[in-house]
Amino acid sequence: MQRRTFLQGSLAGGAVAVAVGAGILSPRTVLAAWPQAAFEAKSVQDAMSSLYGSADSNASGDIKIKAPDIAENGAVVPITVDTGIGGIESIAIIAEKNGQPLAASFNLGKSAKGFVSTRIKMGKTSDVIAVVSAGGKRYAARKNVKVTIGGCGG
């Protein structure tokens, strides 16, 4: 009798564990960890708190942002971020005055160097902020880009 109740109990427990496991796994198999809240945030502060858990960052002279002073077409603004900071974990590119400021976040593995380059859309003239996360701290640099024709919507 005792053995029977034990079996029933373990079977029920097993079924719950399988259901929970499936529930957690199904969305993750599609995307590892796309931070939806950070990308949908409407301000730089919100985006950073959502991405890193805090909006704090230190200004750093060791981050170089290569971007045009004047972008004729806001739909294609080439941005290059180059940094010599060691122990780098990620580089985020933020266009301050975009409706959704966070444009991209690059998670860098151990073998990756502190260099990323891509092209982003900018709605209007604003600062481009590069946030480098290294060793649990965040460092930021910014560069103003003038946009003559916006690249969001249209």
Partner: peptide, 29 residues
């Protein structure tokens, strides 16, 4: 992935341009 090990994961929002270009550097390859 470099030789099967993830080197860079880029998370993008809609603000990345059409027909995206990306470039990065990895060491030890």
């Amino acid at each position: 992935k470099h030789n099967g090990n993830t080197a860079v994961t880029a998370l993008w929002g809609p603000a990345v341009s059409k027909n995206p270009y990306l470039s990065f550097r990895i060491g030890g390859a």
